[in-house]
Design a protein around this nucleic acid. Structure first.
Lengths: 198, 198
DNA sequence: ACACAGTATTATACCGAGTACACATCCCTC
DNA sequence: GAGGGATGTGTACTCGGTATAATACTGTGT
């Protein structure tokens, strides 16, 4: 979703060949965000098909890619367009907790704890990694920070979830099919409360 | 990635037909996480192909899906396996900032501000939505909380990024191709600092 | 000089999640 | 009994991503 534009940006600095793009991408983000070799070429080809990139003549074994005017425009457009904040991504962990709530015989509290511990451990690893990356590596630093803040948010959410569930009558969560008819229920139609944005 | 297991879990409560699954999924997560009709059937079919689900005989116009023993096992396995914390997801916003850093003529600080404002606005919308959802709706509450914590993490990251860039010699970030040879550079091979986990 | 190994570079076949849209059926009403 | 709307299912397609094939270059030992 975003590798495309990253490559476009690297090409905006001048024509490069495929693997060079991968090198430069990974030079910024280090071992944290590896980039599959194949993906470079697939996205490059897709970019070419869309007219955002042109490929120069083959020079020996390697091929040079150039950004087009169209590509530059697309890049600028993307840069200044904030990402969609409605329709939040379907988070795996959140779904897992939802599932655990409905399933009988699953100790939700323990599940929360297990995952919390896991997240905290990951945070420690990244904190350590952060400590030993030279302060000049701005790109890598930003990536690590992003991961740290993300993990911290998850931990906080887990805590909030635990609190929420603790102050709740036992089992009151399971299967609130209140507005579901026994077999053929009608879809809940709530007014879209998020209309104000797009 | 996770809708699959959500459907599996709903089927663990008993055989259901396709649209029923969609109803129940959306009953928990409300308008925040809509579920495309087609996706229900595509994932259902994929689950069937993997042997996690069986489809009963067609009863009139609708078709009943049952979970298999294999499916139950898979569900349990998934429930207790924490998600991968190495290889963090490639975040669009982070990439955007990275790109902005390298591109000449882009006001990075302003870009940070624009996106920060956008995130805060989204948070306000979700806070409002949260305020008006009945406390009984645990599922929806959890989803909204998750989104709020996520957005808050992003805002904090943006602030940290701004601070980091402010205390940096001007333009010292652009294109740190330190270890890239002029044309054919060798890939940076840093010791994998994240080995301790898997 | 030749075989062999390794690696750099590109290309392609494939997969899974997700979307749009078409198709079929039932039921209600006029 | 002919629309019309809700209900229910299926399919063709896009898109990001991965694994792996295919090809050419480079060095090394004997």
């Amino acid at each position: 979703m975003s590798v495309r534009h990253a490559l476009l940006a690297l090409l905006a600095e001048g024509p490069k060949y495929g693997l060079r793009l991968r090198q430069e991408f990974q030079a910024q983000t280090g071992e944290v965000w590896p980039l599959n070799v194949g993906q470079v070429y697939t996205t490059l080809h897709r970019l070419e098909k869309e007219g955002n990139v042109e490929s120069d003549e083959v020079d020996g074994t390697q091929k040079r890619f150039r950004i087009t005017a169209e590509g530059s425009r697309e890049l600028q457009r993307w840069l200044h367009t904030p990402p969609d904040t409605d329709a939040p991504p379907r988070d795996e962990l959140v779904i897992k907790v939802q599932v655990a709530l409905r399933m009988p015989g699953v100790d939700v509290m323990e599940l929360l704890q297990v995952h919390r511990r896991h997240m905290v451990e990951a945070m420690q690893r990244y904190t350590h990694l952060k400590a030993e990356t030279p302060p000049g590596e701005v790109g890598l630093g930003l990536v690590i920070d992003a991961q740290l803040f993300r993990l911290e948010g998850i931990v906080r959410w887990l805590d909030a979830a635990e609190a929420r569930l603790r102050h709740l009558p036992d089992q009151s969560w399971a299967a609130s099919d209140v507005d579901l008819a026994p077999d053929t229920g009608s879809l809940r139609q709530r007014a879209n409360a998020l209309g104000g944005n797009r």
